[in-house]
Structure formats: C-alpha cells, structure tokens
Amino acid sequence: MHGHSHAHAHGSSTRAFAAITLINLAYTALEAGYGFATDSLALLSDALHNFGDVLGLGLAWGAAALARRRPTERHTYGWRRATLLSPLANATLLIAFSGALTWEAVRRLGAPPQIPGMPVIVVAAIGIVVNLGAAWFVRDGHANDLNRRGAFLHLVADAAVSLAAVLAGVGMLTLGWSWLDPVTALLVGVVVAAGAFALLRDSFNATMDAVPDSVDRAAVQAFLAAQPGVSAVHHLHIWALGSDEIAMTAHLVRGDSDGHDAFLAGVVHALDQRFGIQHPTLQIEHGATCRQDAHGDAVQHHH
C-alpha cells in the first residue's frame, strides 16, 4: 500500500519567490558592478552573500515549478530530486567564491587601498531596503511554511550584512579607516563559507539518501513496532524525494492478523501526520518464512 500526500506549491507562492529572486538578482548585479568599479571588497563580499541567497531563492522558486511536472515512464518520481542536486553544486560554488574573497581580504589587510566611502554606503543602504522589502514580501505564512521561513530568515540576515557594509563605509568616509573594507569582507566571507559548508553537508547527505534531519528513524521504528499485531520491523529505509517530500519503505511482520487494508490505511495516515512521511510503502509479512540476513534485515523465501 502506498501513501500519497503531495504538497503542491500555490501559484501565489511561486510568484512571490519569482519576484524576490529577480529583485535580488538585479540588486546583486548592481552591487557587484559598483564593487568592481570602486575596488571595494566589502561590496563584492556582500554581493557574493546576496548571490548565494539568490541561488537559494531560485531553488525555492524552481521547487515550486518542478513539483508540477508529472512523473514519466522513465522518471517515475518526477523531477523532485533536482532540488537536492542543485544545492550541492551551489554550495561548492559559494565555498570557492568565499575562499577567493577571503584570500584577497587577507592579502589586502597589510596595505588596504583607499576606497571611496560614499558609494559603499549608498549601495549597501539600497541592499538593506531591498532585503527587508523582500522579507516583507514573503512574511505571510513564514511561521508554517518551511520554504518561506528559510527565505524570510535569509533575507533578514542579508539586511544585517548590508548594514555592516554601510557601517564600514561610514568608518572609511569619516575616520579614513581603509582597513574596514577588507575586515568587513573577511567577516562576510566567513559567514558565507559557514553557511555554504552547512548547505554542502545537508545536500550531500540528502543525495546519499540519508534519513532527513526532520525525522527520527528510531522513533519511526518504535512507532511501527508498537502497531497492533506487529512482531518485527525490517528493511526500514527513509529518504528525501526532494526538498519537501519524504519517502519510506518497511517490512512489517504481522503474523496471522486480519484487516490489513484498514491497518495499512491507519499507519500511512499516522506516518504523514506524526513524522511528515508522505510516501510510505509497507509490506506485510506473516513471519513464517522470514530469516535474518547479515545486516539484521529480513529475507523472505518464496517457495
């Protein structure tokens, strides 16, 4: 028996992600352009940080669009897994960029060049407005929608990073502290690298079919083992189908109990409600012909 509970993205959610992705992309291009023009690492590092979030927002947008693609004869799960592979590539790219920026910032600390403070202040101030405006755009439902919550928190954090760049610009303009530019870039580079490493770890685990962080495998096993008539649970596998869908397979040894259809319907519903597992596949075994294999899983013999 198979349980289905698809979480299709609403059109308004798709439009919200599309709008803030494009707005942030336009601002990132503007900030990078001014960063190169003024030779400001603070602006370039903030542009990198924003670019990382544009990639993340683009994924959220893409996930909403990909969820509508129907499975095919060849791609029976559809295209959900693309939302797990893209973060892996994006995290690798961000780590490489932040490494290059950090290296340049450290190199500049010895003899920081003179950076015009006013362009840094103006461009970074625009960033605060853009990011807070975009956060306001996705504020509705961010407490319940993980996709929106992630976007909301990232955008607020971006506004804080832009504020740091503004303060660096003020320091350079009023006090002549040219070292503030590479120091700000260094701090942002560390923030970007830390976030990228976390994303790399999570996306690598997801592509290797690890149990999602939101699911406690031991709790699922205990729940299944405690169901009426179940004497053993084998072959329990839990993995992410995409960024917001979880699949599971399990063999349940249930002796000669009756009412398997009603039993399966109840368990499938409970797995979705309690653990957020929307795609469980459960196999019922009577136990007489099962033995343990080398991994402690059940092997069923067919005569």
Rank of each mutant, 00 (worst) to 15 (best):
V191N: 13
A100Q: 12
R139F: 11
V211I: 08
L163H: 14
A222S: 15
T76C: 03
T174G: 14
A100Y: 13
A105C: 05
L200W: 05
I20V: 15
A157D: 07
R254Y: 05
R108W: 13
I246L: 13
A64H: 03
A100E: 12
A225S: 12
F197K: 06
H301L: 13
D261G: 10
L200D: 10
D209I: 01
V268N: 13
V106N: 11
G127A: 12
T102E: 06
G11C: 08
V129G: 04
W179D: 08
L25S: 12
T102H: 03
I238C: 00
L88M: 11
L48E: 04
H6Q: 07
L85N: 05
F204E: 04
N144K: 15
G189P: 06
M208I: 05
H142F: 15
A111S: 14
G242K: 00
T72S: 14
V220S: 05
V120P: 01
A96D: 14
H142D: 08
N144H: 15
G255V: 14
Y27I: 11
F36I: 11
L85T: 07
T207V: 14
L25A: 15
A47Y: 03
A26R: 09
L180H: 02
A164W: 08
G176D: 01
S13W: 09
G229M: 11
L57Q: 06
L199E: 03
P113W: 08
W103F: 15
A270V: 05
P113I: 09
E285H: 03
N50E: 07
G11H: 06
Y34R: 01
S178L: 10
M172I: 11
P112E: 05
V106H: 09
R108Q: 11
R148F: 15
A67N: 03
R70W: 04
A193E: 04
G11Y: 04
V268E: 14
A9T: 08
H8K: 13
L25I: 10
L59K: 01
E31Q: 13
E285S: 04
E285G: 02
P71A: 07
A7M: 15
L88Q: 05
A185M: 07
L43Y: 05
T76D: 04
A288M: 06
G287M: 00
D145E: 13
T281V: 12
A60C: 12
L173C: 10
F17L: 10
L88H: 03
G78L: 00
L66W: 05
